[in-house]
Write a protein that binds this DNA or RNA. Structure first.
Lengths: 341, 341
DNA sequence: GAATTTCTGATTTACGTACATCAAAAATAG
DNA sequence: CTATTTTTGATGTACGTAAATCAGAAATTC
């Protein structure tokens, strides 16, 4: 049996009340006594029974998820996963509230974060827009002792406790190597379709991609980035246009959302051409395109894992517990036709 | 606040004791009363507070892990993960015991399983050796109401509750596509290094690999399988030999363990040749070989995830709860030089 | 050394569930 | 209708922790 508070009391020669005061950092304990108790805790190897503690406290964890009100498959998926987590929340003693904030709008995010600072939830998860004032707002929350994790997109240089998302530079490099190897030394041009260069994940993916291509696949030339604003219609138009004008294109890297438009353009304009295509995010559309050969590989981050990981980390931080790092690392999934889930 | 047993009692118009009898399936409740209580439970949407229940029961989950006494990096890694789980076990109210069983020895596994049947642990996890009498022994455990999950290697047609491992046919197909695409239509021979064709995962990987190569990459010819028994020395010898004799080899698929020997052979015999190599299981050796270009891609299953998943599933089954399927699906990791963890 | 402040101990209630006991009520058998 | 069995209610204790109260002890101040 693991030791309990009673065992600490006995070992330290103090009363239960004093042990409780030390454990919960309540005032009214002399320094010497406090140290006596603390060393007893260490000696007998006491670990607080979190389940019992939460039961006694009647505690639930009021968590807040800030999700961008963005209209693409990936964000819809993320939202669905948060809702699924909300559905499970009573069982896990969490009380998750989601707040939609305008996408790519640092000011809106900041004001929401400030509001939350007054509310003092047990933890905050957010899809960060990478701006200095957002970072400052997050850091203020952290300094107030509120656990904060970023999801999907991280915040440069902030004090957030954790980032539940993939390494986007590595993702870009991986895409580059796949494209480069699949093209087998051929010479030609690569088109890159992004959502917007104002978003950190997209910038990083491009950065990793471009670096590896130029370092290891010099026979491939990267064309100026096409910014499709994650909008299927716009993406369709821009990609169609590029394919018509340039017939040196032998590969495409789609690093953002809006793949529906890309896929349509490919089917219309490139059915005859042997294009190699690598895209991000597994959705119904990209899955179908992978299966029918329009896309050759899909890089993906599992939104469900990200949401669950964020919640686990917030809970652990709220309880002052440690997390299993390997469990919380969000992996970059590579899907070929053959290993689809 | 979520409803409690008191709420059920009030809603059903019975006493707490009766609710308790129904909930814990104790005798002494008339059918009509039982149904009244059950419908009240459904109506108010009561879910048992597992934490409080376990506290009251003073319950710990005595789980047993049967791991093969196999001397290769992967099994060592698996063992380490189980030990890590054991270290965490007091916090999670689990009491995990590991038992080493001789590898690839159905009889030994069966006798251990039979012994456990008498012991009645709260759950059993095992790396299955795929044999009919093992299946029967597992099914007897299941029929006795003991939760059973297979880890890494599954058991054909058995009643086990769950399999915490990757789809090995898909893994073989994925390896085939990677090799095929990386080779870019070149013509030549592919060598396959396996541990033993007596193990199910290896058989399945080969099956998937061969099927896809012959269907989609007809210019590639698969040489007879080299069985290295997961032994680095033997693998080294056999691969060296093959490389010396056949100079039509342009690709290698290593689907088992013992990659240390393979890597040595490659460095000695094929430094000059442009071989494309796909191997399984990320270890210190394969990682180094991937980074220095000796290996082109590594397929991996995360032993830590498998172990934690197995424990989560066993716990859920023991409590009669459901699991989050997406969370428990073990993914096939594809590692290139650029997305190593 | 008395008055005051600061610590400490003893005790109680609570969280939601499990489990046991004993008495009372209801159903069934004879 | 009585005797018996079955079903139900009432109540208490326990799990490990949190949190509160109040009295008493120890330390500090003047």
């Amino acid at each position: 049996m693991r030791p309990t508070v009673h065992d600490i009391a006995a070992a330290a020669g103090v009363s239960l009340a004093t042990v409780d005061r030390v454990l919960n950092q309540r005032p009214g304990v002399r320094k010497v006594t406090r140290e006596k108790v603390e060393s007893a805790i260490r000696e007998i190897g006491y670990v607080r029974d979190v389940a019992a503690a939460n039961l006694a406290k009647g505690r639930t964890y009021p968590f807040v998820f800030l999700v961008p009100a963005s209209d693409n498959s990936f964000m819809h998926g993320l939202n669905a996963e948060v809702r699924a987590a909300v559905a499970r929340s009573p069982v896990e003693r969490t009380d998750i509230r989601t707040i939609e904030v305008p996408a790519f709008d640092p000011a809106a995010l900041v004001s929401e974060l400030e509001r939350l600072r007054g509310e003092r939830p047990a933890g905050v998860a957010l899809v960060a827009t990478d701006a200095p004032d957002v970072r400052e707002a997050v850091d203020r929350l952290v300094q107030d002792g509120i656990p904060v994790v970023t999801v999907v997109s991280d915040l440069t240089g902030s004090l957030r406790h954790h980032y539940a998302g993939v390494d986007n530079i590595a993702a870009g490099r991986t895409a580059a190597r796949l494209l480069g190897r699949f093209l087998g030394g051929a010479k030609g041009e690569i088109a890159v379709l992004a959502g917007s260069m104002l978003v950190r994940d997209h910038r990083e993916r491009l950065e990793g991609f471009a670096a590896l291509i130029s370092a290891e696949f010099p026979s491939l030339a990267i064309l100026p980035v096409i910014e499709g604003r994650d909008d299927p219609e716009l993406a369709h138009m821009l990609v169609s246009d590029a394919l018509s004008k340039k017939d040196g294109i032998i590969g495409i890297y789609s690093l953002g959302a809006g793949n529906r438009g890309l896929i349509r353009a490919l089917k219309e304009k490139a059915a005859d051409r042997a294009l190699t295509v690598v895209a991000h995010e597994l959705t119904a559309h990209t899955r179908a395109a992978l299966l029918d050969g329009t896309i050759d590989a899909i890089l993906n981050q599992d939104a469900g894992h990200e949401v669950r990981s964020a919640i686990r980390v917030l809970k652990a931080k709220a309880d002052g517990l440690s997390v299993i790092d390997a469990q919380e690392r969000i992996r970059l999934d590579i899907f070929l036709k053959d290993n689809l889930p």
